[in-house]
Simulated assay, not measured.
Amino acid sequence: MASSLDYTVHRYGAHELQRVGVWDLDIADKTETKYWIIYIHGGAWRDPRIAHETFAPVITRFLEGNSDESPRSGSGRGSNLPVAAFASLDYRLSPHPEFPQDPATTPPERFRGARHPEHLADVRAALAFLQRRYAFGRRYVLVGHSAGACLAYQLVAGMSSSTTTITTSTSTTGVKEDDLVAVELPAAVFGVEGIYDMQGLDARFGGGYAGFLEGAFGPRGAWDGAAPMRYAGSYKERFAGGLAVLGHSVDDELVDMPETVGMAERLEKDGVEVLLVKDLRGLHDDAWRDGRGVARTVLRTLEILRERDGA
């Protein structure tokens, strides 16, 4: 169980959502044979009910060692896992119509009014904080679900490093300019049921997603500039040697398979190594509520990385 691990919440900024949880599996191991697993939650960039703690069921699947009986899944506390620690981060959210706040009376450190690239700047700041504190460099797998998958691939594309509205004052945002650039990219990035092409997804769902997409990214004309599938640069140049993993459930009712397949095709076109997993099961949020498919795929990813390491 995730509750069996030492768990610490760190702050990386002044806002109440600028926090990251760390579950210590074997942080003290300095042999550089183990990886961190770092998670970015979804929730359409705005749902305050979905936070960093929602990664706990997936961690439990790792520790149970029963994610479809993977040959390297370990047992008990997970001592055989090639994992040093698990981390899950929160980031400032956009407004949600069902959970309104009055900007005149809500303190800045509690107000949910973020818009791209502020969510992504927080992801970068959280990763920079973890890398400075624990010195694991690029020995991590970055996992993102839904909106979190979008953020993970936006990070790989560098979409917040050259254009940002974040101020450098920690009194207003808690994010310093250094945090926006000093991030080593992961050895592998795993997008689960992600949103990668806002225009395409909204069109296939009859315009029904415009509300939360406008809340997160502004007018429709701004969406393509933030869409990982429409990134103007080369992923091969940004992510040389990295492993891109994409997973989707055939039962997903909120995001359709073309999002994942289209992103895989884009990455392959750029010459990036892609692992495409299309046999996950369950509804959209079952990815983190159940966790079996995510744990199984991350273990497979770790096997590939360890083979590269010669382990």
Rank of each mutant, 00 (worst) to 15 (best):
P103I: 08
R289E: 15
D178G: 04
A84Q: 12
R92P: 11
I195A: 08
P82Y: 08
L155T: 14
D290H: 11
L89C: 07
T173G: 04
T60F: 04
W223P: 11
Q101N: 09
S234T: 06
L25W: 07
S146L: 07
A87Y: 05
E268C: 01
H96Q: 11
R296D: 06
R238A: 10
S249D: 04
P95C: 02
E109G: 03
T297L: 06
G78V: 01
M1T: 15
D197R: 00
S160W: 02
L151E: 11
T297Y: 14
D256L: 08
V181C: 08
V156F: 02
V58W: 07
D224E: 12
D102Q: 05
A210D: 09
P48S: 03
L302G: 05
A149P: 07
H96N: 15
R11K: 15
R49T: 14
S162I: 15
S94H: 04
D24E: 11
V189H: 06
V192T: 10
Y12C: 06
K34Y: 02
D179G: 04
P117A: 07
M1W: 13
D24Q: 09
H15A: 10
F111K: 10
Q199T: 14
K236C: 11
I59M: 09
E253P: 08
G310W: 03
I50P: 03
S162V: 15
R11V: 12
G206Q: 03
D24G: 13
E64A: 14
S88E: 09
D202W: 07
W36M: 13
A135T: 13
G221C: 10
A227M: 03
S4L: 09
